[in-house]
Design a protein around this nucleic acid. Structure first.
Lengths: 219, 219, 219, 219
DNA sequence: GATGAATGAGGATTCATTCAT
DNA sequence: AATGAATGAATCCTCATTCAT
């Protein structure tokens, strides 16, 4: 089951100037994103940093704490971003901008969405915090914005959360499933080109969402 | 980290008439869906069936094999469904029908999407088979259908795979993230009502997709 | 620090008929008595039984539980003995008999006093149970007996617990300190002869205790 | 198993004038007395002094050495005391005095007896030195004294070591078992009152020992 | 003297798997 | 078909100790 260990990033010099703590977080982020919490051995993280497993415990009190630190570090900028978007009182016109920003940010740390997805699929346990701190505001503010915007007012209120959720699925899904998509697409889903294309796709979709739907003959 | 063990399904009678093999598969499906491959101990699966861990080996050659059997069993009807859809040469008018069918099918085995998502996030390794056998046809036939349909011909060919992928994210995401969404929505995402609503939402979205996008002033 | 591992008792035959559980308890008793809880590695216990450490966990849920089982098993007969003595309403004339019985019993399982002493010195934690279940009744009934007996009535009530405690120290001390005494005496403190001598000594001491003390010139 | 860490003694000022070495010894003495050698981590000792574990190695070459230094420091006054008693050629009349002195001394450093008891129960290994340097002279001179004293001459020579050993058990036991006794007595065994009472009890016992035993009908 | 960081050696415990019954 | 017992390999973590700063 164990995939072959991702190649050790050799510390260029004898003593990497970058704080060991950060290098540990990097290694942990990569591995946790790849295999999930249970799939990663502390020893593997250590090895990736070129450390003895015991040394990790000089920097983090345990595996769980390390995991949470990784989530924390990864989520912070995302939270800030969402916060800033919310503050600005997102008008529909900004939608394109918001999407571009989010995609750019996620594209910058493509492991993060995968990490989050791992957490999300696993369910509540560790996630509840994450849900309350990250997902929840995203939902609350998203629905609020859609309710106020004249363009989206034609969506029934009960559907709004599904729209938001859908956007999350689309946003995160692209990154989280990247290895899978790579198998099917001809290109690397994380390449700048594909990312740009996906951004444009999401923007187009948004624009469609504000279009009043054509009368459904069945309804 | 260990979530509280899901309640044992007590075998109603002394000797459950249902084949032990199936009961094992059920238990394994549930647990693998909840915690992923690495998060589940063979012992837990056995316990859930009321068996000794050693007994599992009378029915499956090992954990990995059991896992694959679970995937196999879960995927088969889905593959069949997708196959049938493809055969019929999906016309756009059937879109509503297709979505309804898929949602119904997935809603019937809500653990399956979660299982797949687990696999998908984890990446290539175990998945490659699955990718080739399930995801790939879905993509190939999906793009083919969209390319031929007059309604969707206005989508640039390079974007078609992203549309398909997006649909997958939306479809699976709703189920896979159910525990997470439950925390944020007021309702159970797997309840018939919400499932119906999500179905309608996806159908509406599809209809939007075939609408030629309004001229973007920026473009 | 680690004393050389006590010699493995080779299982005479290929498969010792005695229940493995008991053999584990025996080994654990010996080692815990020798080195105390913290001084014993589960692996050592297992090795002494000729088992892999993991196998222990088929019989006991953990080290602590094994430890408690050892105490339990060792204490039960002692508790029963003390109970029986108490029931009979110990008259002073029986003192000799009681002492002899206790010494015989302890001499039969000389590791037990050492184990208890280990526990006692370590203090409250694990002991509290033991204290309440074993030591306490011993004290309560001991003091009750002394208070009623005409021979010991001349002891001030406040001193009675000290007398009882003293007896415990003498009783257990002889066994618990056996290795130390062996270094100083010329003989093995656990040999029948020395045990007999110690029994007689304690009996003599008891007889002295019932003797009204000579008037102390200083008092 | 780990008892809650004994409260750190905060160094009142910024730089405790008392030699660090002594503060380490104090902390070590306390912890070793509480939990025994194996139950104490170097880190715990260091923490109790407000030091990094590594710093201990500036003062002691290792855990074992620190342990021995603790024993050494604690035993020295006791050895001196016993030596002085022996020199004076202990006459029986002094017995009260000797007991009082010993009790006073031990009451002053109540951790020491516990430490010794830990060592004693653990058996020979580390102890042999201790035995030869401390216990042995105590025995030799004790027996010598009793043999010469006219009051105790009625004790058979073979019983004398048992008498001495018994006294040790009584003396040390009271301190070593203090936590246990506290659970059973209503009072703190180390309080001045109880210590005084125990002293008086031991003195009374000594006086009884010199009383020729009443003729035992059974003998 | 003090310390943060590193580490090899263990230590308890879990796990997937095997096998005799 | 089921199971109790056994086990080698891991897994997380602790520990005593070292060393450069």
């Amino acid at each position: 089951m164990q995939p072959p260990p991702s190649p050790v990033i050799p510390s260029s010099g004898e003593h990497d100037p970058r704080a060991t703590r950060d290098r540990i977080l990097d290694a942990a982020e990569t591995l946790f994103a790849e295999r999930g919490f249970d799939g990663v051995a502390v020893r593997d993280i250590a090895a990736r940093v070129g450390l003895n497993a015991a040394s990790l415990y000089n920097h983090f009190p345990g595996k769980q704490a390390l995991y949470e630190a990784v989530l924390e570090r990864g989520l912070a900028p995302l939270l800030a971003l969402v916060g800033r978007i919310a503050e600005r009182g997102a008008a529909t016109e900004d939608a394109d901008q918001i999407i571009a920003t989010l995609m750019a940010q996620l594209g910058h740390t493509p492991q993060l969405p995968r990490l989050i997805q791992h957490e999300a699929v696993r369910g509540a346990e560790n996630l509840s915090q994450l849900a309350r701190r990250f997902i929840r505001p995203l939902f609350v503010q998203g629905t609020a914005a859609m309710k106020q915007s004249p363009d989206t007012r034609h969506w029934p209120e009960s559907e709004l959360p599904l729209v938001i959720a859908g956007f999350m699925h689309l946003l995160f899904g692209h990154f989280a499933m990247a290895p899978l998509l790579a198998d099917v697409l001809d290109e690397d889903p994380l390449s700048p080109e594909v990312l740009a294309r996906q951004t444009r796709f999401l923007q187009k979709l948004t624009r469609l969402l504000v279009t009043p739907p054509p009368k459904d003959p069945k309804e």
